[in-house]
């Protein structure tokens, strides 16, 4: 994230392929992790891996990393408020259930 915009301004064919390989590796990891009995942390591990994969798709494949700063602020702010509303829904469910 600390990298300058110029560095990523031209993602090459090799760069995309590398990200794709990373995504496949993370898929293998999530399938393997599901085979191991992780108990309560299984969901957390799965969501963590899925979030990392989505981050790679959004920043590299969807070019979020090479968009302007204002562009990224708009998108991240929108995503942030979705996360907030989901968290509020969960807290609502948890505390109002009984």
């Amino acid at each position: 994230m600390a990298n300058s915009e110029q560095e990523h301004a031209h993602i090459g064919y090799g760069g995309y392929t590398l990200i794709w390989l990373g995504l496949l590796a993370l898929t293998a990891l999530t399938v393997t992790a599901a085979g191991v009995n992780l108990g309560n942390v299984a969901v957390a591990v799965t969501i963590l891996i899925a979030t990392v994969k989505s981050y790679l798709v959004a920043t590299i494949f969807m070019h979020l990393k090479i968009e302007s700063r204002l562009f990224r602020v708009v998108v991240y702010a929108a995503i942030f408020f979705i996360v907030v509303s989901i968290i509020l829904l969960f807290s609502d469910y948890t505390f109002l259930r009984e």
């Binding site: 999530t30 399938v31 599901a34 299984a42 969901v43 799965t46 969501i47 891996i49 899925a50 994969k53 989505s54 798709v57 959004a58 494949f61 969807m62 070019h63």
Partner: peptide, 25 residues
């Protein structure tokens, strides 16, 4: 084409979450 790509990647991102939640864990 870029916007079509964005839409397609979103379809991919949603599946990234659907797949482990339904099929794996």
């Amino acid at each position: 084409l870029v916007n079509a790509g964005l839409y397609w990647h979103l379809v991919d991102v949603i599946w990234i979450f659907l797949f482990p939640l339904f099929y794996l864990i």
